[in-house]
Design a protein around this nucleic acid. Structure first.
Length: 294
DNA sequence: TACCAGGGCCTTT
DNA sequence: AAAGGCCATGGT
């Protein structure tokens, strides 16, 4: 899809960087502000129109944009982009085709509107463990506080990347820390859930390969063996951490818009293999409408 | 079946 | 400034 000569390497203050041209259906702002990821924040003073900085896959990076068809990545080489960030950002998928597929299957004006409004969103390919753990933290919680808790977990238990930024803590690290320490990071009643997940992953009782290879129903069932993972958290983990793009997590926002614009017998599975993208468009759109006090 | 469990953000009063 | 709603899951 993206050809090699559309990637240019450069350096800024000694930091390796790449500029990618010919990008479509992608906005850094929407992708990192649509509630799917908790480790990236906007950079205040930047020469770019939009810049988000954060950690993924144990690396500190900054994604920046001045125009919809260009992307800058600081802290990455061309090799890093091709081997990791292209996939992480979902740039290896044809979102034009995905949007057309959703439109053909649904015929919903609301979804068409939502997909137009959030047309720059891409579903990130987050690390499975980070997704599982993060969405346990997210339950019954708001985004600013989720971010604070995860930042505290990373700072206290994650591997030090550069003295300033920290990787997401491993299940082993969380097991060593123990429930009372996790509780002290303001996780509340979720502390025991986080520990249960970490222990099941560490012991191999929760097998990420098995989940990846399972049918949608089986994958959800496997994740729900963890205390504190229910249908919604399981589907978030599948969508954001396992590349299961048919997963369709229903939270209060999505419930609201389904009740408003879809018939009661509507089945998200009818949206096909990319139903999860539809869910993300609807979520982003409903939150926007909420912001407009409608 | 209905409620509560951390906590803090956000809106309304 | 103060009050109340909100939130996904498991347990009582």
């Amino acid at each position: 899809m993206l050809v090699k000569d559309e990637i240019k390497e450069f350096k800024e203050a000694g930091v390796p960087a790449v500029k990618i041209s010919g990008v479509e259906d992608f906005l850094v702002s929407q992708t990192f502000d649509c509630g799917q990821c908790f480790r990236f924040d906007p950079v205040g003073s930047t020469r770019h129109e939009v810049e988000y900085a954060g950690v993924a896959y144990g690396r500190y990076v900054r994604f920046a944009q001045d125009a919809p068809d260009e992307l800058y990545i600081y802290g990455a080489t061309e090799r890093d982009f091709v081997s990791l960030w292209r996939h992480y950002l979902g740039l290896d998928l044809d979102y034009g085709a995905i949007k057309r597929d959703l439109a053909l299957r649904s015929g919903s004006a609301a979804l068409a509107e939502a997909a137009k409004y959030g047309g720059g969103i891409r579903i990130l390919a987050q690390e499975p463990w980070e997704a599982v753990c993060s969405f346990i933290v997210s339950q019954n919680n708001n985004i600013p506080r989720i971010k604070k808790i995860i930042a505290a977990m990373c700072k206290n238990l994650g591997e030090d990347i550069d003295g300033e930024h920290f990787a997401f803590p491993s299940p082993e690290s969380i097991c060593r820390a123990g429930e009372s320490f996790i509780f002290s990071l303001r996780t509340g009643f979720r502390a025991k859930y986080i520990l249960d997940a970490a222990e099941k992953v560490r012991s191999g009782e929760l097998d990420f390969d098995a989940i990846r290879n399972a049918s949608p129903e089986e994958a959800e069932e496997l994740l729900c063996t963890v205390k504190g993972i229910g249908k919604k958290v399981a589907n978030c983990a599948l969508l954001y951490g396992f590349g299961k793009y048919d997963a369709f997590p229903v939270d209060v926002w999505v419930r609201r818009i389904l009740d408003k614009y879809f018939t009661p017998d509507f089945d998200p599975a009818s949206l096909g293999p990319y139903a999860g993208m539809a869910q993300q468009y609807l979520f982003y759109y409903e939150r926007y409408l909420g912001g407009q006090k409608q």
